[in-house]
Design a binder for these strands. Sequence first.
DNA 1: CTGGATTACGAAAACAATTTTCATTTTCGA
DNA 2: TCGAAAATGAAAATTGTTTTCGTAATCCAG
Lengths: 172, 172
Amino acid sequence: MPLNEHDNGQVDESFVKEKEAAFADFIQRKGLKTTRQRNTIISTFFRLRGHISVEELLNEVKKANPRIGYATVYRTLHLLVESNLVEERRFGDGLARYEGHSDVEHHDHMICLECGMISEFFNPRLEALQEKLAEENNFEIYRHRLELYGACKDTESCAQRKNKKAAEAQGA
Amino acid sequence: MPLNEHDNGQVDESFVKEKEAAFADFIQRKGLKTTRQRNTIISTFFRLRGHISVEELLNEVKKANPRIGYATVYRTLHLLVESNLVEERRFGDGLARYEGHSDVEHHDHMICLECGMISEFFNPRLEALQEKLAEENNFEIYRHRLELYGACKDTESCAQRKNKKAAEAQGA
DNA sequence: CTGGATTACGAAAACAATTTTCATTTTCGA
DNA sequence: TCGAAAATGAAAATTGTTTTCGTAATCCAG
């Protein structure tokens, strides 16, 4: 379970605090109630890093409070999305994944189909080009999604593994 | 139900025939069997245009043969995808949509969140830029997906409707 | 042709992810 | 602190899709 930590292995407490405060704010504005369960869930969520599935989050949450179930986790995630603190993503494996906003407001994804790695990137020219195309098509973009599916290409990497597999199939 | 037709309203029969033949070929190569149901389904599918959901297709298919059910439609769509004659897409409304290959080999999508319109576009610079970014990140792209979500912007259009809604909410 | 193994069909059950229900508990402002 | 409003958790319901299983259709060898 990846933690939202610095390279030194420490969870970024100020980051977590900030998110907790922002969520408390949202809850208050909406006239909703602060509960132990929601606190546990969001605190747990923002200590995790990456693209978290509901099951992953629930497992982690249960360590703090085993009585919390799927329903509450789902409900809280919806609130997090509604509050704009979290984005929901789907990468085609049938699971929703949730991502706490990082410093980069918007970014796109590269998904390695060999090892499952998901990395993020952002490129202003790409964004500008999309805007230009939308303009040409008389279309107003609210949001977009760009996902590159493929393989890592570092030494002894996924792309190599893939090529090896293909070669074996060829030889057989 | 949009038909795969020319501007004059005629279904492109040669297109349908071509697809039927290609599917028959695939079925034969795989050692599978030709059946009335499959013929009905693919013939119906390729006469439709756009991004067809399973339910839409089944409804249309039932007009020709009411006894055909979901299972067979799903199974046939899987074969169509496997045969590379059709692509599966998901635009986040929880439904799989199927698209017969058009002349344009690859394309991206703009989805209007107001009226549901789905239009297609292709831009070589966008493709090239993606390749460049992948290169920089030591990543090999197998395929990608780009979807722009927003609103049509023509006169008396979806973007206007949206703004009107916002204005009303403001005024209220 | 035709038998018969193979494959496909269709209805219904199973599934997986997610949402809802409902009885109970908790929160929080008057 | 009372009580209305909201939240919880277990279980049931929903949704989209897949699988099962008994029956029917296909099609190749003979």
